[in-house]
Design a protein around this nucleic acid. Structure first.
Length: 438
RNA sequence: GGAGAGAUGGCCGAGUGGUCGAAGGCGCUCCCCUGCUAAGGGAGUAUGGGGUUUAUAGCCUCAUCGAGGGUUCGAAUCCCUCUCUCUCCGCCA
């Protein structure tokens, strides 16, 4: 959420900055509502002040045993007028709020302007893509040939965009999450957390998924409620990312200055309905309704947030370096950034079968955008509450990392080597082989 | 799932219709006293809005005692709904 003050005083600038990311701010509607808001707020408050004063007089008179009928009659007439003004004001405020909640964050000045992913800016590459002396296969054929990856059964169990892993592959998946958690907690100073996978609407509003992106989520309600006639709105949503529960830990909190920066990591499954992406990545593990991710969240002093963003990307990169997977880092352009971000770095890992880099991590600074929605604050140097800055990034998407390993570590005989650093997590296993496929 | 108790400022806690945005204590800040420490004395100490203003100052004002609604001229206090916490029983990994 943007600061409403900023919209009042600097509307033109805000509008043009939002336009850079392809968002047309409804200035006319906003201005009209603002003007109305001002009149009705003033009127309401005047009436309230009169009522409060009169009521106090009544109380005073009664305590002295005096007669208060004159004042009573006077104040009784205020009632209707006040109620009307209050109702009108409430409607206006909620309409304003509706507009505000749907406005994306303003891009940072260092973000390149652009319309789509074509305009993202590559800022560095790491690692040499390996050259193969045989025909590379994609992770689906590799996994299926090994007998360890089974989309058919997954479809029977749940439908499209679900996966089933077995044996060494399932273990490799688990090994990856353990490995990532270990690095982030032991080398990067994150606090490991275990968080709810079902969250309430306040949390989703806090991080920006609601009200605008409800269609991308899975809603869950308890027991029989589903079929019953009173169609209550759902109690819970499945988390689309651990960013939601972790960041919302500080919702409605005022944390002490000395507790900053806060750095949390969590491994969770993520659930996304992937509405609106029907044609894309239908094959394989790339785009699933359920996938695992190790998520990093920073909650920091506003002056530190851009430093924190660089650290955050670095932490995600470390994982790929330790796995010896080639990647590149991009600054997303204004048109390709997510709703809550002022600046985002994407990390893309090399996938030899597609001969291209594919997104494996996204690291964003949200500045105070989420904090304002959440009322997440700290006590600043002057002991006054001030909004925090929040950042989040994948460190990394586990399924996509698994894809990258299968493809980059594949061998001519169909086996897949285990990256050196993961061997301790694999009980010494050094290859996934066809015979080893249980 | 059943029965009961509760939710008040940074914390503890008083307050059951009227000068209550809220006693008292603790904590914290500043000042005084003090050789140091301890003790003592004094003052201050919630948040979010709106209006006015060049203004982060000041002034005026509104809202907030778990959340939302209601009764009333007036609600922390009465009524309804919800959420959460605790205790006991049941069930459960």
């Amino acid at each position: 959420m943007l600061e409403i003050q900023q919209l009042r005083t600097d509307l033109e600038n805000v509008t043009s900055n939002l336009a850079k990311r392809g968002y047309i701010f409804p200035s006319n509607a906003f201005n009209t509502l603002e003007a109305e808001r001002k009149t009705f707020q003033t009127r309401t408050q005047e009436l309230q002040a009169r009522r409060n004063k009169a009521s106090k007089q009544i109380g005073y008179a009664k305590s002295k045993g005096e007669d208060a009928t004159t004042i009573l009659a006077e104040v009784a007439q205020l009632g209707d007028e006040l109620k009307q003004a209050e109702n009108k004001l409430e409607t206006i405020q909620s309409n304003l709020q509706k507009i505000l909640l749907e406005v994306p964050n303003l891009p940072h000045h260092s973000v390149p302007e652009g319309k789509s992913e074509e305009d993202n800016q590559e800022i560095r590459r790491w690692g040499e893509p390996r050259s193969f002396d045989f025909d590379v296969r994609d992770h689906v054929s590799i996994g299926e040939a090994l007998g360890l990856l089974d989309f058919e059964t997954a479809a029977k169990l749940s439908g499209a965009r679900f996966s089933l892993m077995k044996g060494g592959l399932a273990r490799l998946h688990r090994a990856l999450t353990q490995f990532m958690l270990d690095i982030h907690t032991e080398e990067h100073g994150y606090i490991e957390t275990y968080v709810p996978y079902l969250v309430n609407q306040d949390s989703l509003r806090g991080t920006g998924q609601l009200p605008k992106f409800g269609a991308d989520l899975f809603a869950v309600s308890a027991g029989d409620k589903h079929g019953s006639e009173n169609d209550n709105s759902p109690n819970f949503h499945l988390i689309p990312t651990a960013e939601v529960p972790i960041t919302n830990m500080v919702r409605d909190e005022i944390v002490p200055l000395k507790s900053l920066p806060m750095k949390f990591v969590a491994h969770t499954p993520c659930f996304r309905s992937e509405a609106g992406s029907y044609g894309r990545d239908t094959r394989g593990l790339i785009r699933q309704h359920q996938f695992d991710k190790v998520e990093l969240v920073h909650i920091v002093h506003p002056e530190q947030s851009y430093d924190a963003l660089e650290q955050l990307v670095g932490h995600a990169e470390t994982i790929l370096q330790k796995l010896a997977l080639p990647y590149r880092v991009l600054t997303l352009c204004t048109g390709d950034m997510g709703f809550s971000a002022t600046k985002t770095y994407d990390i893309e890992v090399w996938l030899p079968a597609q001969k291209t880099y594919r997104e494996i991590s996204s690291c964003s600074n949200c500045e105070a955008f989420q904090a304002r929605r959440m009322q997440a604050r700290f006590r600043n140097e002057k002991d006054k509450p001030e909004l925090l800055h929040t950042l989040n990034g994948s460190g990394l998407a586990v399924g996509r990392t698994l894809v990258a390993i299968l493809e980059n570590y594949q061998n001519a005989d169909g086996s897949v080597s285990i990256p050196e650093i993961l061997k301790p997590y694999m009980n010494g296993l050094d290859q996934l082989r066809i015979t080893g496929g249980e």
